[in-house]
Design a protein around this nucleic acid. Structure first.
Length: 762
DNA sequence: AAATATCAGCTTTTT
DNA sequence: GCTGATATTT
């Protein structure tokens, strides 16, 4: 045990060895947060204060949960089976599967991801003849999720006006529809779990008694409902160990409430507040810049990171004439870094929004530098995978209408909109699911539908004794999905993905401790043995030893859950040493030797929409703070005077964040670099194999850039009254030149340059 | 019912 | 500039 605590600094050690009381750990970026969390768990176990079944650890992402599990198993190699380590949603799912009767859910409930939820809502609006212009599905979704987050059912919301009344009504209809179809959205997992514990004192007390220690990662990201859930799970004898950093709270837009950190201190009478301020990641210049920037925020709990590492390199800053030049500069610097021996995977290029990745990708592709983009479509979100999953969901639960509608006519089998309408009518009249309504439709439509039923039933029959991978393989074949993609021109990738689904299932079984031979479908025997009408039966078995996953879910159900709760990594260029491209949001929690923060322009970063939200700018600043603190050795900042975005040229001022960073840590490269890159490559030219060549040979500047003029489009100028602005366009010649200038908040001004006194800034 | 044309919209994102 | 969702054609 001693060596486990050996290399901790005094604050980390104090946190790890705190007595059994609730505590708040303010863990700065790069301060060893995960290490403290896992060592704390190992320490609790090794000192015999608690057994594995008395510990619950909650994270936000599956990745973080996995990381915690794997680090823990090196610290504490004994059996970690009884531990509840997982995401909020994963643990709620576990709870609801165990106590599905008390939660009034079918045992085979399916989980809706965001896409599914949206299409469910669209379908709801359609069946109720609601004008989706007046009630956009997306808005209704936000309304519903927002209400659930605040813990409100439709029945308890008091609408203020007619519009809201309608929204509440639709929310109620949505609840009913989901209940009928046996599906549960992400918010519902949390809300239903909370209600389960609230209404059921036996269960509540059981869990409150059981969990002596609850550890929460990234506590600043909890929303109100998640916080409520934690309060319900924690009893008088439970110590909550909350780790978070208010300066890294970047998810307010999806309901995260930093205020939970204050409520927590109050609600749990927190006596122990520990700050981890020693940073083990970044060099001095980088850390100082981060500290200075974040000091511009008000309402902080307060924290200042320090490091023992030296100053290191200054932060390099580049002002590029255009987004293309910005990329060119990045390529240049990247080549230097690689030339100096840095591996590509240690270099990250960050941007505020995904739309910015395209130019960068194009540049990297042309230069032949391997890269990997994070974000975008993930494995379980791909259309072909969603189709396959829908077939599997139908086999698991034929009442799942969303799944039914997705594949009833895919591959096409002559079941069109008309037929589906008939089916919906019958489903309403006879109060059955769409699948259950099929026998009520006759005629030609009925024949087409019957062929669909035959497919599903054939699969169900054939698959009875099969294990999961074979079940999926059979489903892919009998559903006609494979055949369909085989005849499609660009179906090769899709078939490859479908085949990967089979191997993903095999992998999943071994990871979750399922036997490969076990039948994939839930058998009657399992159902009876587990929960034969006795609400406490599941609890009883929990009290003894924990029920392993294979006992509460069939392999198929578990796999479907996995598909919904874990969208899967983006698997492009797996294993290759590649440059890392991602948004600042997805970089949170990661670290790199070198980091480029690109597109530092007003309107982009900070994003223009942030100005409209309360505390929006502060969140953008925290975002910038997160970005800066990703860098270990080298940090590069850049922006472009002109940028093509959404098919339009934009002329942005440089980001205000530059004025919030200390000059002494920055090294502006621009005067030198600008002349090097001032040849602006024309757009709409065919992509060239090598950028360098294009720069050397063709370099024509568009005429509109007014070569003879003293002024240039895209350059930053200073005006006495309006402050800094960017020249958007120039008209006229000689002495009669007028300029359109973007003065940011002051708006756009048309100035006669022979009258207005402007100064060059860039 | 399937194939093709047109049109809005467009921050960040995990579960 | 590209994607996804409707409108229109065949």
């Amino acid at each position: 045990m001693d060596n486990m605590l050996e290399n901790l600094n005094p604050e980390q050690l104090a946190a790890v060895t705190l007595p059994s009381q609730s505590a708040l750990i303010l863990a700065g970026a790069g301060s060893g947060k995960t290490r403290v969390l896992t060592t704390r768990i190992a320490w609790l176990l090794k000192t015999g204060q608690v057994s594995t079944s008395g510990i619950m650890a909650v994270t936000f992402t599956n990745k973080a949960a996995k990381e915690m599990m794997s680090r823990l198993s090196t610290l504490f190699p004994a059996n970690t089976r009884g531990l509840w380590i997982g995401t909020f949603h994963g643990l709620c799912n576990r709870l609801l599967r165990l106590h599905y009767r008390e939660a009034a859910l079918p045992q085979a409930f399916n989980i809706l991801d965001t896409q599914d939820q949206l299409s469910t809502i669209k379908r709801l609006l359609k069946t109720n003849n609601i004008d989706d212009e007046k009630f956009p599905p997306r808005n209704l979704m936000y309304f519903i999720n927002g209400a659930k987050e605040r813990g409100f059912r439709a029945s308890v919301i008091e609408a203020q006006d007619d519009y809201e009344r309608k929204m509440v009504e639709l929310y109620g209809l949505y609840e009913e529809q989901c209940q009928r179809e046996g599906v549960v959205d992400f918010g519902e997992l949390l809300l239903r779990s909370c209600e389960l514990l609230e209404k059921n004192p036996v269960l509540r007390e059981h869990y409150q008694e059981r969990f002596r220690h609850i550890l929460v990662d990234e506590f600043q990201d909890t929303n109100n409902l998640q916080y409520k859930w934690l309060k319900l799970m924690a009893g008088n004898n439970t110590a909550i160990f909350a780790v978070g950093d208010d300066d890294q709270s970047i998810y307010a837009f999806r309901g995260a409430n930093v205020g939970n950190m204050l409520s927590f201190q109050h609600d749990f009478n927190v006596q122990n507040l520990i700050r981890l301020e020693q940073n083990y990641r970044s060099h001095g210049n980088i850390l100082e810049a981060a500290n200075t920037l974040i000091a511009h925020n008000t309402h902080r709990l307060g924290k200042n990171l320090h490091t023992d590492a030296g100053e290191g390199e200054p932060i390099r800053v580049c002002e590029a004439p255009s987004d293309l030049n910005e990329v060119q500069w990045i390529l240049d610097e990247v080549n230097h870094l690689i030339g100096d021996g840095m591996s590509r995977s240690e270099i990250a290029v960050l941007y505020r929004s995904n739309a910015q990745s395209r130019v960068i990708e194009h540049g990297l592709f042309s230069a032949g530098i391997p890269y990997r983009v994070y974000g975008g479509l993930r494995f379980f979100e791909r259309a072909e995978i969603k189709h396959a999953i829908a077939y599997l969901q139908l086999i698991d639960n034929p009442d799942n209408n969303a799944a039914f509608l997705r594949v009833v006519n895919f591959p096409a089998r002559g079941i069109g909109a008309r037929t589906v309408e008939q089916l919906q009518e019958m489903s309403r009249i006879h109060d059955v699911s769409l699948y259950g309504a099929i026998p009520y439709v006759s005629g030609k439509a009925g024949t087409a539908l019957a062929s669909f039923v035959r497919i599903i039933q054939t699969i169900r029959a054939e698959v009875k004794e099969m294990n999961l991978p074979s079940l999926i393989q059979t489903t892919l074949e009998k559903s006609g999905l494979l055949l369909h993609y085989q005849s499609e021109k660009e179906g090769a990738d899709r078939i490859e993905n479908l085949e990967q689904l089979v191997s993903a299932a095999t992998l999943f079984l071994s990871e979750e401790g399922f036997s490969l031979e076990a039948p994939a479908l839930l058998t009657e025997k399992m159902t009876d043995g587990l929960n034969a009408g006795n609400p406490l039966l599941a609890v009883d078995s929990v009290i003894g030893a924990d029920i392993p996953l294979p006992m509460i879910m069939s392999p198929l159900a578990a796999f479907l859950t996995h598909a919904s709760l874990e969208a899967g990594e983006n698997q492009a260029d797996e294993g290759q040493d590649a440059l890392q491209l991602m948004t600042v949001h997805s970089a949170k929690g990661l670290e790199f030797d070198a980091v480029f923060i690109t597109g530092l322009e007003e309107g982009l970063f900070p994003h223009e929409n942030s100005a409209r939200e309360e505390d929006g700018l502060e969140e953008e600043r925290r975002l910038m703070y997160v970005a800066i603190t990703r860098a270990k050795k080298r940090l590069y900042l850049s922006y472009a005077q002109t940028r093509m975005l959404h098919g339009q040229m934009r002329y942005n001022l440089s980001s205000r964040f530059f004025s919030e960073l200390p000059d002494r840590n920055l090294k502006w490269l621009t005067p030198r670099k600008q002349s090097m890159y001032s040849g602006i490559p024309q757009r709409k030219r065919e992509p060239v194999a090598q950028f360098d060549k294009s720069f050397a040979v063709e370099k024509q500047t568009p005429a509109s850039f007014g070569r003879n003029s003293e002024w240039r489009i895209g350059e930053t100028v200073f005006h006495k009254k309006f402050g800094e602005g960017v020249i958007v366009s120039l008209e006229g010649q000689g002495t009669a030149v007028r300029a359109n200038i973007n003065f940011g908040r002051q708006g756009m001004k048309l100035l006669d340059l022979s009258i207005a006194k402007l100064e060059h800034v860039s």
